[in-house]
Amino acid sequence: MKPIDMNERYPGYNVLNKRNSPSWNDQTREVIDARLAIDADFHRFCDEAEWQTLCAVCNQIIPQPDHRCPKVPIAAMVDQKLYSGKGDGYRDARLPAQSEAWRKGLAAINAEAALEGGKPFCELAQEQQRVVLLKVQKGEVASPAWEGLSPQLFFAKRLLHDVVTAYFAHPASWSEIGFGGPASPRGYVRMNFDRRDPWEASEARPGREEEARRENEHVG
């Protein structure tokens, strides 16, 4: 499966070009710089087996374009959240607490992988990994490791929630979807339909790709 490169839709747009504009202040620069400095290999919550599984799972859920550099360190961001112990403020009663759900879920995904292909999840071929995750998503699992953890709920409410939240908290994904990112103190001015502030991403609707690229190069 070829990863979708949404940047085609906002060609040339890079939210970080606004870093020194009035859309950011010192506090914002500090916070986003720290996020950009997250080491993609750093993990404190996961042990080695969990980490390998988590990295492979993140790759399957949100494949990133090969040429993107650096990639969003999704696994490291999920690990950071789990290590901090900071929750979401609510928990579905059918799922165990966040950290327990993840440990159990990652182990169960590995156990399911062993049944599917005789190897840990991270060593399976891409297509086999996909099959395993589809089974988890649909609840069509065979491993007893799922005892006490609903695979569908784990997939939909824990795994996707944390992976997607991490991904979309990173400037690389903001550039991809044309999101403006930090907006204080400048904010936005042109509020009418079809109006665009020069510091907003320009969308390449069919036929205006080059115009969008030119506009995006001046976003700042």
């Binding site: 859309s23 950011w24 506090q27 914002t28 996020r35 900071k86 403020g89 908290a169 930090p182 907006a183």
Partner: peptide, 13 residues
């Protein structure tokens, strides 16, 4: 900071 993840520090979690 003008950032959603950062501002989660405001929440009762």
């Amino acid at each position: 900071a003008s950032d959603e993840m950062h501002q989660s520090k405001l929440y009762w979690t």
